[in-house]
Design a protein around this nucleic acid. Structure first.
Lengths: 195, 195, 195, 195
DNA sequence: GATGAATGAGAATTCATTCAT
DNA sequence: GATGAATGAATTCTCATTCAT
């Protein structure tokens, strides 16, 4: 399923980087540390990536690509918009809960310093974003969501909300179950807090 | 109002740092650059801050402190919970819209790599967080919010949602008005998207 | 004429190196760049040369060897010493004028940093040097040159003088004809500047 | 006499560099080695020079500047052109004979790889060159040199000739006296080799 | 308190060379 | 012989921090 044309070492390096970045953060991760983790020589990294930063962006592209694949597999057009949204939240929470390294990197590094890098990563998020917008649009059409829902804004609100929940869970030291938050999260999205 | 006992240079350095961090991000900002911006010698910085990181955390503490002051000034117990929530969102959006440097730093750098730093910054956010939780609690008591609202979770959802809206606005290049998003944002929080 | 027993690739590599060295200088020329220019794999180079430095020294040996062949072809014992000297200068200037890559490499790289390398290259120059000394000696014998001419010193003076003219012509961007300088050069050698 | 406004460390670094470059050649000289030789920290070098290359070019500028000062001190307008030329050669040979490090660096490194660097260094030579041209011009005026002497070409021939003598003396291991070559060198310049 | 010159640890990246195929 | 992917030693330069003045 994954773009499997790349050589093994490419992926080995990305996996090494995922681990090292998660443990230390991008800036405190040395390339040589990643190389060791990947079981290759330092120089080998530069056969596959132009510069250190490229490792990070490639990592996001690959991993977010995999996430979109999961969404595609788990959500079908036959589902109602509400049900689809719940699945999105379920997959979002469970994937990150089951892949803590990825969670660290996306939550912490995705928010990394330079805006330039951030914009590039934003590109990788686009398909995810389109996915949510798609569901919202679908809900508006079939009447299950308010007709005056601002799709773009609500997509941000939903994404940001889930995002913060994951980050908070991480910072807390993952003391509770993330997937157990799905119900209340979706409830809030659907019903709001008004009594 | 703010802990105004600190000497002028302390604030001059923080203001310099705010500007420099906003322009380059924390990691790409040199201490000497901040010193120049603040009009002091490099070494002087170390009379007021133990290390570079301290500048960042102090900056958050000061700035978030100022934000809480604004909340305190703009929100009163007599207001309904709903109205209070709207004011929180208004202040949050307008303060950041009017202080772009601060917006950059909070949105981008608040998400700093190392978790250690992040936790420390989290402390500075606590009073803000308590503020929102307080409102939610108040709403539950007076019946305007669902009695089964999970205060802690919803506070995260709300905070994360607003946060993402601000970040998106920044990344977009601030092409639209942030404060104009208040209405729809609050509507979503209160009513959800269910028709 | 040339030691023509070497396989084609040997010469292909030398020609590639000549071009690459001329363009970038020895130190800034990568072996892989030479390989590409020669149309062989990086590793192949090491089948013909022990190390990068060997490419440079072999290049000099081959090219200076070719130059000596030209001298042998163009200068005959029947010529007077003066005429022979003029031919040396003619060949020296015209060969380098017609082979700019070679000119760059000899003028610039012949003056390579490490003395060790330089000495080795000096070996390759020996036959050229002997050629000039031979002419000077001949001139002394037949009375056309001062009997107290210090052959070794004058050979250096002549060689250095021509060398500097070529280098200067190169550095100037080859804006004028080098061969047109032959007359005045030889005049100076023969008559000096004294009125 | 030297541009004495630069701080001591600037000169200390240049002296260190002179020694290290002479011993190893530019490319094989590490910045840290120069720093140690100069008695400063590695980083200090970068307070005075932008990059490693700048050390080399500055070195030439300073040293050639000093040489020109010596010329100015040793040669006066009252001297005949011939006498002046002899003094140039004397100073050239004796200065380099007495400053072997400088000799190595000028003879070997002056001829360094990239043409760009070489051109820059050429600038530093300009005053020296002008000096020789000046003498030749003077000789033409007062009739002691041929009226049809091509000043620019002859200047190159003279400079190149002396240069080669020095280089050869260096490569030979300085087995003989350089200054003793002055007489024959000047003789050749003035009278040529024609009997 | 204030300065800013000096420090030196630290890290990304390059590239000559090797060697399994 | 030929390949070119892999290696890893080597080196410049940056910049947070110190400290003598």
């Amino acid at each position: 399923m994954t773009s499997s044309k790349k050589p093994d070492k490419y992926y080995a390096i990305l996996e090494g980087a995922l681990k090292v970045f998660a443990e230390n953060g991008y800036h405190k991760s040395q390339v040589s540390r990643i190389a060791k983790e990947a079981g290759v020589a330092d120089g080998t990294i530069y056969l596959y990536f132009k510069k250190k930063e490229d490792i990070l962006t490639s990592l996001f592209q690959e991993k977010l690509g995999e996430l979109v694949v999961k969404f595609n597999e788990g959500i079908h057009e036959q589902m109602t918009a509400k049900e689809s949204l719940r699945r999105v939240c379920e997959i979002h929470y469970s994937e990150l809960e089951n892949n803590v390294h990825l969670a660290y990197v996306t939550q912490i590094e995705l928010r990394q310093s330079d805006l330039g890098l951030r914009k590039e990563i934003g590109q990788a998020l686009k398909r995810y974003i389109a996915f949510i917008e798609n569901i919202l649009e679908r809900g508006k059409q079939d009447g299950s969501f308010h007709p005056d829902t601002d799709v773009k804004l609500v997509r941000l609100l939903i994404f940001g909300a889930m995002d913060e929940v994951v980050t908070s869970w991480l910072i807390s030291g993952r003391k509770y179950s993330l997937t157990e938050q799905v119900g209340k999260t979706i409830n809030f999205f659907l019903k709001g807090i008004e009594a």
